[in-house]
Write a protein that binds this DNA or RNA. Structure first.
Lengths: 171, 171
DNA sequence: ATGGGCATGTAAATCGTTACATGATTCT
DNA sequence: AGAATCATGTAACGATTTACATGCCCAT
């Protein structure tokens, strides 16, 4: 259901095709959302049916036609209503934590592997985050705040991971 | 799919009924997982079909019979295999962040509301976490590690929230 | 008496991913 | 020559939530 509002939110900035939306999400918003066409296109059709968006087909030669969606007043209102409603609870699943939690039969070096693997992942996420920071461009302030959020989280996790590593080495 | 392994993991400790499993999860594991009966019972039936668990029915008077599930050797092996496989990517959705990200039309005080609301939630999560810490009992060490993880994360988020609040007050 | 705990389950609805289908153009 | 980009979509499958259905016991 949040995909609906994510789309509406993006369309408040400028009209876009499904393809554009996809690119936009996996680009700058890749950290908090990711979408496949299999969910995106049906969601757009649904929004159209509900009158929250309109389409205009742009014919191109040598390319499939682009269907450019624009948000309507109704859509804007729906989006603004959602924005002001209290946010739903987080839905988080970290398989890594589950394995750690249930991993009491793992040998110390297997635990170390698990932890090391995680560390590498967090570090690669952090690298990606820093790239984003270097190309902020004309994005809204709120964008930088969200980047800061992830920076804090990654740093905290790295701290935790290294203290965990120490405890594992002490045996 | 992780529900399958979560169940198996819990059953390595002791045989349990579906009801027990549910309680156990929403108790000590409430932070990383939550399960409804609508997914739990079918998952148990599936495990039984696959020979990963066995059942024994305990008749009780004045109560519905308990179906107590025990893990089989096959189930144990499957669980151990899963445990040693690299963990899948995190799946995280924080509606709060999405609203912040898209909230460029929100007035400063509306943003403040959003942030304050979030702070209260994080703090109540932290209180819940501290309760858990006080009743660790005979849980495995890995349990405390996971608790530490959440403590770090909550603290980091609170830091971020207060710096955000300051920036909002500066206008 | 009313709500919560005990205890099982099914059905419908929702949400999302993966894989498939198509096909031209441009970059390496 | 082959990969990536542009651009749309559907179908099958999988996971999960919510609501429904049932019914006794115990504490307030």
């Amino acid at each position: 259901m949040t995909l609906r509002y994510l789309i509406l939110g993006l369309l408040t900035e400028r009209p876009m095709s499904g393809y554009d939306i996809r690119k936009s999400i996996s680009g700058s918003m890749g950290l908090i959302a990711n979408v496949s066409y299999g969910s995106l296109y049906p969601a757009l059709h649904r929004l159209l049916e509900d009158g929250a968006v309109t389409v205009e087909v742009e014919l191109q030669d040598g390319r499939p036609p682009r269907k450019v969606y624009s948000i309507t007043d109704d859509g804007r209102q729906e989006f603004e209503r959602w924005l002001r409603q209290p946010a739903g609870a987080d839905q988080v699943r970290r398989e890594f934590l589950l394995k750690l939690w249930l991993g009491k039969t793992l040998a110390p070096e297997e635990l170390t592997n698990l932890v090391e693997h995680r560390r590498r992942e967090v570090e690669s996420n952090m690298a990606r985050l820093n790239e984003m920071r270097n190309q902020v461009g004309d994005k809204a302030v709120t964008y930088t705040w969200v980047l800061d959020y992830f920076a804090e989280m990654y740093q905290a996790e790295l701290r935790w991971l290294s203290s965990l590593k120490e405890r594992l080495e002490e045996r």
